[in-house]
Simulated scan of single mutants.
Amino acid sequence: MSCRRYRRPAPDAGLPREDDDDRRRPPVFGEQAFPQGNEGLPADITMRVAARPPAVHETGVIMTAPQPVRIGVVGAGLMGRELAAVCGRWSQLVDHPVLPEVVAVADPQPAARDWFRRVASVQTFADDWRPLLDDDSIDVLYLAVPHHLHEDLYIAAADAGKDYLAEKPFGIDATAADRIAAAISGSDSFVRVSSEFPFFPGALRAYAYAASGALGDILEVRSQFAHSSDLDRSKPINWKRRVETCGRIGVMGDLGLHVAHVPLRLGYRPATVYAMLDNVVTQRPGADGSLVDCDTWDNALLACRVPSTTDEPRRFSMLWET
């Protein structure tokens, strides 16, 4: 994301220097800081972690023995495997309060489930997600399924009182999104969307700088997620290129969230939107090798106007590209 400005910031504005007293404070999005240590964890986990005797890392750092968190994965595709890989490396973190482990996986495809047999901690292999929702020994779920399955699964998980991390978008269309949001609001579940970009150090610093006001009056904002995987026209079709499984939103419902997340966190909410959408690759090989129509958008540029908070009543330009 880039912002153009036309007013020079004050001489002392900007990011904290290495000698600033607040250099160890957690990054802040709006008014809520990211938790450090045990802050923000459920009370029972916090109490159990605090009760554990400390250990000493080889560097001499005093560590707290981490509390295991048992994870059930629904959707054994790419993102489900990515989560298993991340959990496998988690022990490299120093003094983290929890230790996640994948203990269950659900997917209708046997081959997809079988990949998880290499993960020693996985004990449950199911062809349906319902057993994972009914399993009280599972602490949290990771839901990584195609868009058309989001509504039923996300609502059922909320109704079951399960805490979960789920893939974007929360619903294949606006109606589904409203139903999911209502179910979550009416439950005790702790729910978050899986969107990692705003948590990267570079994105955090960019956010902090923009939020500080150091940019002055905003002339325009450009936010882009440049991707190239779909340029290979021989790549087989997948669910993301079909309206029935991805939704009419197309690429903006997938990669588009990476483009929109930081600007929306900064409060840059469009008053008007003009969308220029392309279906660049119109056909891809199907399962039998024959060409299948791609009926979703695979490239998008959104031209937006955003009310200025520092130079009213002007509206600045914002471009989202993916």
Rank of each mutant, 00 (worst) to 15 (best):
A84Q: 03
L149D: 03
S223W: 02
L93M: 14
P68F: 04
V280R: 13
T175N: 13
L277T: 08
E220A: 09
D278Q: 12
S228F: 10
F125L: 13
D135G: 05
K168W: 00
R118E: 14
F199Q: 12
A158E: 03
D173L: 04
G253K: 01
Y268I: 04
P16C: 10
R89Q: 14
P53R: 13
R89P: 06
D114K: 09
G60N: 11
C294N: 01
L231D: 12
L219F: 03
R4F: 06
S308D: 12
T296C: 06
Y274K: 10
A144M: 06
C3R: 08
K235C: 15
L264Q: 06
G60R: 10
Q32L: 14
L15T: 04
P108M: 14
A55I: 11
Q283R: 13
G250H: 00
G75F: 03
S212K: 03
D139G: 02
L133G: 02
F125T: 01
G202Q: 12
D20T: 09
R7L: 09
G88L: 02
Y207S: 03
G77I: 06
A111L: 15
L132V: 08
T175Y: 06
V61K: 12
S290A: 13
L231I: 07
T64A: 12
L99I: 05
P198D: 12
I71H: 00
E101L: 06
P307Y: 09
T296D: 03
F170A: 02
V102C: 04
D230T: 10
D295A: 02
P236F: 12
P270M: 08
H96Y: 13
L277N: 10
A300T: 14
W297N: 01
R222C: 11
C246D: 03
S229I: 14
